[in-house]
Amino acid sequence: MKILVTGASGFIGSRFARHALEQGLQVRINGRRADAVTALCAQGAEFIQGDLSEPALVEQLCRGVDAVVHCAGAVGVWGTYAHFHQANVTVTENVVEACLKQKVRRLVHLSSPSVYFDGKAHVGLREEQLPKRFSDHYGKTKFLAEQQVFAAQEFGLEVLALRPRFVTGAGDTSIFPRLINMQRKGRLSIIGNGLNKVDFTSIHNLNHALMNALQAGEAALGQVYNISNGAPVPLWDVVNYVLRQLDLPPVTRHLPYGLAYSAAAINEGLCTLLPGRPEPTLFRLGVAVMAKDFSLDISRARQYLGYEPTTSLWTALDEFCAWWQAQHRG
């Protein structure tokens, strides 16, 4: 099988591309930064650099491949709706259109559980439990991108979408780096009582889920799947585990939820007034994420994808910490 992996210069895309190469697949990769994919090219990946907002380039990328794993997109909380729509919806439209024109058989789309976020606690969320209103541009545009993907079924494209929660392992640049830097500056506090349990996903488990999605039978098609390690853990225990591994002091200071939320609202308001609208250091959504229970029901992935998490969170955290130390040695 020959596949295209978009977003291969990012964490998830690069790790899956490497996994696919190790499984014997022919892999074409796309990303904006050539320096970030040198190791993949050395392993045999075919790299085509370029911007997925250009339809002609996307058609070139999809030519001659059997399947596409679409990992590219904008992530985060701060930014304009136009920015997130372009990177998540328009780019996905280009990928879908190119798949149809180039007769690609299957498209596996990497979505996000951010589509569920509404600032409330949730335990065992099922895929259909969407909020009445999306809490941010990222969540809304990731859902709209899913809709573009599923609409292509009508034209014969086999489609699936995955919503993995808090993916971590070597190369993770999104979850822990901000927390590590905040703790080093003495700015990190436990929000609320610190007992909230959340889901994480080992990158190895996500790799297996993506591979299973590429190979799944007809019954699995046309659906979106929650992906996690399936074992919610206290968030602040995880944060302090990582800090201890990196020889940093644990977080012990508590900040009441209401106070943190109010401070985040003021922070966001001030940043909207400043020249250039700099990104706030604290977000209301981030406060809710760090203080509330949040876990996913992964039974659909187990049933239709044969997904079973085998790599523990603690193994993934050890892998992340070893990688982080190697990156920051000296």
Rank of each mutant, 00 (worst) to 15 (best):
K2C: 06
F11D: 03
A17V: 10
Q23C: 10
L25V: 03
V27M: 03
V27I: 00
R32C: 04
A34G: 15
T38C: 09
A39D: 15
A39R: 13
C41P: 01
E46P: 01
Q49W: 06
G50I: 06
L57H: 11
Q60F: 04
D66Q: 14
D66E: 13
D66A: 12
A67N: 09
V69R: 05
A72Y: 02
G73D: 08
A74G: 14
V77M: 13
V77W: 14
T80L: 05
A82L: 02
H85P: 13
H85V: 00
Q86D: 14
N94E: 03
E97T: 12
K101N: 13
V104N: 15
R105G: 09
V115H: 03
F117H: 12
G119W: 06
K120V: 02
V123L: 10
L125T: 14
L125C: 08
E128S: 15
E128W: 15
L130N: 02
K132C: 02
F134H: 06
F143Q: 00
A151D: 15
E154C: 07
F155L: 14
F155E: 11
G156W: 08
A161S: 10
V167T: 12
A170K: 03
A170L: 00
T173F: 12
S174Y: 13
F176V: 12
F176D: 04
P177C: 08
L179A: 07
M182E: 09
M182D: 11
Q183T: 00
Q183R: 14
L188S: 00
I191F: 08
N196L: 07
D199K: 04
F200L: 07
T201C: 14
S202Y: 09
N205M: 04
L206I: 06
N212P: 11
A216E: 06
G217K: 15
A220R: 10
Q223D: 05
Q223A: 02
N226C: 05
S228Y: 14
V233L: 10
V233P: 04
V239I: 14
V239M: 00
L243K: 07
Q245A: 11
P250D: 09
L255W: 10
G258K: 08
Y261S: 00
A264R: 07
I266Q: 04
G269I: 02
L270A: 06
T272R: 04
T272Y: 02
L273N: 01
L274G: 00
P275L: 07
G276Y: 00
G276K: 04
P278Q: 02
E279C: 04
E279Q: 06
E279L: 02
E279I: 03
T281N: 11
F283G: 02
R284F: 01
G286F: 05
A288P: 10
A291Q: 06
A291C: 14
A291T: 08
F294Q: 09
I298R: 03
S299H: 12
S299Y: 03
R300M: 07
R300V: 08
Q303E: 13
E308D: 11
T310Y: 06
L313H: 05
F320D: 08
F320C: 06
Q327Y: 05
H328I: 03
G330N: 14
